[in-house]
Design a protein around this nucleic acid. Structure first.
Lengths: 109, 109
DNA sequence: CCACTGGCATAGTCTAACTATGCCAAGAGG
DNA sequence: CCTCTTGGCATAGTTAGACTATGCCAGTGG
């Protein structure tokens, strides 16, 4: 099964949604969760994930705290803020709007 | 109605599909057609369109010839090549695949 | 004559996903 | 004990491509 890039702009959406669903996760969990739920179609590279998380911290969409994993490793746990939940709603509706429009174009006769 | 950006990567798809539908068009027509069919959601700026068309010429997905519009203006008419039609099929299935995957993620419970 | 519109084009900026790489700690295997 | 693998975070640098701003030229209309 071939690799697929994450369409630019949708990574925030994927992360926000994953955190909304699971409450609190560290980086690896997020990447893993996205890959799993998408049936291995979407692969989030670490070099994309961590910069995105940093930007999301700055924007105030998530907060982070250091903790320890089940496997006894140090990890940074991310959690949505109220702003993050609001942003998720915005991105969802934008996504649907734009994808709907594109679909209309590529399905037009 | 607010402006929306074209998600990077999908512009080729939109242009290819528009040309496949209409046979032969010049730049303005392409932009116009995309905007119209998408119900004004998608607006293709000239600074995005012409560079994209240049890249598509280089890739051999389209050919261009100079002509004259109904309004008696000089214009460059673009037309799909066989490679362009093949590329359209590739981009369509990739789009569906990736968008389907994203949809699975953002609709997961 | 001049402003407007249609049309093409490029230079330069910016976002964001990628590749490659590095660090550190915990277990596993020899 | 030591090395290897794995889990985990992080950044530097590259690249693609859509954007803004701008310029040019030719018809047409007031």
């Amino acid at each position: 099964m071939q690799r697929d890039e994450i369409p630019p702009g949708t990574l925030y959406l994927l992360i926000l949604k994953s955190l909304a669903r699971s409450g609190e996760m560290h980086g690896y969990e997020i990447a893993d969760s996205i890959q799993r739920v998408s049936n291995d179609v979407l692969q989030v590279e670490e070099g994309s994930l961590y910069p995105a998380l940093q930007r999301m911290l700055i924007k105030g969409w998530v907060i982070a705290k250091w903790g320890t994993t089940a496997g006894n490793r140090r990890a940074r746990y991310y959690q949505l803020t109220a702003a993050g939940r609001k942003q998720l709603a915005v991105e969802m509706s934008q996504f649907e709007r734009v994808i709907g429009a594109i679909t209309r174009v590529i399905e037009a006769v």
